[in-house]
Amino acid sequence: MFDLPIEGPALFSIPFGDIVDYASPYTLILFLFAALFTALAILSRPEQHADIIFGEDGVYTGRIPGPENRFQRFMAIACGLAAMGATVSGDIFNFCIFTSMVGLTCIGIVASSGNRHVLNAAFEYGIVTMIAMIPLFGGAAIVAATTGTLSIWELAGGAIAVPFVAKAFLVLGVMGEGMAPFYVAKAEITRAQGAPYILMIHVSSLLIFLRIIEIIITI
């Protein structure tokens, strides 16, 4: 049952056994937003990144070479799909999988960038993300161990008590993917060129953060 005074009623639900994928107005808007930005990444030509030659009047504009462009676009679309999955998944474990996919594809987006600062930042971000996956999956494991289910539909409304530490671990894990205290590396990797693709890094991590807030308040 899902009719909580948190995000409005469930609009529709698709049951797969006890895992019920559902859409409330909230998750639907998050999903549409992820889809919108994925569409932007598919449709837009990348920006050209004007730069100033220091100490002169010169300006150069960087154009992303073809293969690199294609790879970035592929990774951005993959990142968008992972974010879409995370916003509508009705299962905590699936959510964690999608979240870690977001972390991986974010590194993929900037991996082909030639800028040393960006690559260094991406490396650091990768380490933070991998460490954050431990509390993330740990949180899911604690939920499964204490309640016997991972379905958000079953856990909704506090019918089965979920330990506070599991919720805290889940939030910590998602924050490691790119929210406040851990994002310093992420701020640097957005220096890479190629606008709609780089934007996906930020879009996906904000969307999964919004989704985990909904999950921890619901369960």
């Binding site: 030509r45 920006e47 050209q48 004007a50 606008a195 709609p196 934007l199």
Partner: peptide, 10 residues
């Protein structure tokens, strides 16, 4: 000139 048009207006 350097902008990503769809994104810029979007």
């Amino acid at each position: 000139d350097t902008a990503s048009e769809v994104h810029f207006v979007g």
